[in-house]
Write a protein that binds this DNA or RNA. Sequence first.
DNA 1: TGTTAAAGTGAAACAGGTTTCAGCACTCGC
DNA 2: GCGAGTGCTGAAACCTGTTTCACTTTAACA
Lengths: 201, 201
Amino acid sequence: MTAVSKPTTAPLTERQEARRRRILHASAQLASRGGFEAVQMRAVAETSGVALGTLYRYFPSKVHLLVAMMQDQLQRLHETLRKRPPTEEEPSARVAQTLMRAFRAMQREPQLADAMVRALTFADRSVSPEVDTVSRLTTAIILDAMGLAGTPTPAQLSAVRVIEHTWHSALITWLSGRASIAQVKIDIETVCRLIDLTNPA
Amino acid sequence: MTAVSKPTTAPLTERQEARRRRILHASAQLASRGGFEAVQMRAVAETSGVALGTLYRYFPSKVHLLVAMMQDQLQRLHETLRKRPPTEEEPSARVAQTLMRAFRAMQREPQLADAMVRALTFADRSVSPEVDTVSRLTTAIILDAMGLAGTPTPAQLSAVRVIEHTWHSALITWLSGRASIAQVKIDIETVCRLIDLTNPA
DNA sequence: TGTTAAAGTGAAACAGGTTTCAGCACTCGC
DNA sequence: GCGAGTGCTGAAACCTGTTTCACTTTAACA
């Protein structure tokens, strides 16, 4: 058995790490202009100074690339949120506040959001592992926001999953111009009430 | 008020109506085999016996085509549901029952579901009117299932929107193999509890 | 230091969605 | 029946994601 398969993460050299970052940066730059469709693989390759073949070695498809981008952004968000946790008292309000903060970040870069969210929901089975990582990150952010004491109950995890569903889908409707910002806010607040239901106070 | 749905669209002749139906039928056939990617425009054109240019005259993009297909299916489902309304007592249970029925239908044709749902969530602004029609149909189905007496309250409409969000997103996670059937069931049941919250009993 | 396997490059080719266009075929008003 | 306009056809071309491949560079290491 050679080490041909992927032991989860191949150790990247410094140059490789730099290349990867250049690629992600170029993608974000292109995305923030024209959204999903503006992230064209040839353009990404050129902008980041790697060959097309190399780009595909790092990210096996455009969707992989964009999902990795989202992973990146979420990580950043997670750290920011750790530093400035939500101020509300009630868990449901804390989650709503956190999601609205993320939403406002997206409003600042709607095209970037478009590229990432569309990729995320369009991803097929071949991207499942990566999408799952994003999902776990999102879950972690929400659970953090809830600020609960011990391990979340199954009911709480269900509520969190539903919140995540609503979050993604509401973003889609907003990005495609079918829902207003206010509408999304209401939807988030509405779904966050589910958390109260799981609180055996 | 007649039952004409689109006043904007030119009235189709009989031959044109037949062509349109042939196209949709061919698409469904291809989709039920290989899902989203198997619905290839050249293949649809050939199977339905129209020229590629004609196909694009009827449906300006692949996503338009698949969204129209979903519209079709939803209409069918709506009629079926009218004939056999849910048997449960509680509104929330009735909605959950209805969605699970739809979900089972999708399980019978997962590839078909894949094509339709992926198209729906991937649709960009140019497809907004059509996606909106699908959304309204879905809303109507859920409201019907609730079996409420008068006009829905704003709170109820919010709950329905969130249910719709969860419905779409849960389907996506199931289709991409990241959630089990049981998981989707739980998510649906969880979100349907929101309906109880809006019941000023 | 020389060897070698993996990684990167560049260019071409392929695949499928979309556009274009010249010509034929229908339909409708005269 | 006749002309005009609109719809349909067929084929080619275009665009962008993806693959392929022969070749070069890099880096690890014997």
